[in-house]
Amino acid sequence: MAKATWNDVILAQSEQCEIVEGNYYFPPESINQEYFKPSQTHTTCGWKGIASYYTLAVNGAENKDAAWYYPQPKPKAENIKNYVAFWRGVKVES
């Protein structure tokens, strides 16, 4: 089971993660939505498409754009549609 934590809180936990380019992508239903705030940030990946971001808000602290997902991925990345990945200090263990 993979688990993502930050600031001593479990952000996501699942046995159904997809691993792409070394990143664990968690199914949308596995994230604890209360800690996720939509961000206006977007980036583009040549083969996955346009990524959207979340800022994490945990115990009064924020981690800007620390999670991302692809709401409308390109065909080769369809398996991670809406799945959430992490960086910027978020600890992911499997």
Results as ranks from 00 to 15, higher is better:
residue 74 K to E: 15
residue 49 G to C: 02
residue 32 N to I: 05
residue 33 Q to A: 13
residue 85 A to N: 14
residue 92 V to W: 14
residue 39 S to P: 11
residue 64 K to S: 08
residue 39 S to F: 13
residue 54 Y to S: 03
residue 12 A to R: 01
residue 91 K to V: 10
residue 71 P to K: 14
residue 81 K to L: 06
residue 15 E to R: 13
residue 62 E to K: 03
residue 89 G to T: 13
residue 56 L to W: 00
residue 52 S to N: 07
residue 61 A to I: 13
residue 39 S to G: 12
residue 10 I to F: 04
residue 57 A to F: 05
residue 67 A to P: 00
residue 53 Y to T: 06
residue 34 E to R: 12
residue 53 Y to H: 07
residue 83 Y to K: 06
residue 29 E to I: 03
residue 76 K to P: 10
residue 45 C to V: 09
residue 4 A to I: 10
residue 62 E to Y: 01
residue 68 W to C: 01
residue 26 F to H: 02
residue 33 Q to T: 11
residue 47 W to C: 02
residue 69 Y to H: 05
residue 86 F to M: 09
residue 29 E to Q: 12
residue 5 T to G: 01
residue 41 T to S: 11
residue 61 A to N: 15
residue 55 T to N: 07
residue 15 E to L: 02
residue 93 E to I: 07
residue 15 E to M: 04
residue 27 P to G: 06
residue 92 V to K: 07
residue 83 Y to A: 04
residue 34 E to H: 05
residue 30 S to L: 06
residue 74 K to Q: 15
residue 93 E to L: 05
residue 91 K to N: 11
residue 36 F to G: 00
residue 65 D to I: 06
residue 7 N to L: 11
residue 33 Q to D: 08
residue 67 A to N: 01
residue 49 G to T: 10
residue 86 F to Y: 15
residue 10 I to L: 06
residue 11 L to R: 00
residue 3 K to W: 09
residue 37 K to F: 12
residue 12 A to L: 07
residue 25 Y to W: 04
residue 57 A to E: 11
residue 63 N to P: 01
residue 2 A to K: 13
residue 2 A to W: 14
residue 73 P to W: 03
residue 43 T to I: 12
residue 80 I to C: 07
residue 74 K to A: 14
residue 10 I to T: 15
residue 70 Y to E: 03
residue 91 K to P: 03
residue 73 P to E: 15
residue 43 T to P: 09
residue 84 V to N: 11
residue 56 L to F: 01
residue 83 Y to S: 04
residue 4 A to Y: 05
residue 23 N to Q: 08
residue 55 T to E: 01
residue 43 T to D: 08
residue 88 R to F: 03
residue 46 G to R: 04
residue 44 T to D: 11
residue 37 K to M: 10
residue 75 P to K: 09
residue 43 T to Y: 10
residue 68 W to V: 00
residue 26 F to R: 01
residue 4 A to M: 08
residue 91 K to M: 03
residue 49 G to M: 02
residue 70 Y to G: 00
residue 36 F to Y: 12
residue 15 E to P: 04
residue 15 E to F: 03
residue 78 E to P: 01
residue 26 F to T: 00
residue 5 T to Q: 08
residue 45 C to M: 15
residue 30 S to Q: 12
residue 8 D to F: 04
residue 60 G to K: 00
residue 58 V to R: 01
residue 60 G to N: 01
residue 57 A to K: 09
residue 16 Q to E: 13
residue 74 K to V: 07
residue 79 N to D: 08
residue 75 P to Y: 06
residue 89 G to H: 04
residue 18 E to K: 07
residue 24 Y to S: 05
residue 17 C to M: 14
residue 87 W to N: 12
residue 60 G to P: 00
residue 34 E to F: 05
residue 73 P to Y: 13
residue 41 T to D: 09
residue 45 C to Y: 08
residue 79 N to R: 09
residue 11 L to W: 02
residue 38 P to A: 10
residue 58 V to C: 00
residue 69 Y to S: 03
residue 65 D to W: 03
residue 42 H to E: 11
residue 25 Y to P: 03
residue 24 Y to K: 02
residue 11 L to C: 11
residue 51 A to I: 13
residue 31 I to F: 07
residue 5 T to F: 07
residue 53 Y to E: 14
residue 21 E to V: 02
residue 25 Y to F: 11
residue 16 Q to N: 13
residue 50 I to Q: 14
residue 60 G to I: 00
residue 31 I to H: 05
residue 92 V to Y: 15
residue 30 S to W: 09
residue 30 S to N: 10
residue 67 A to R: 00
residue 49 G to N: 13
residue 27 P to Y: 13
residue 19 I to S: 11
residue 65 D to L: 09
residue 26 F to W: 10
residue 53 Y to V: 10
residue 24 Y to R: 08
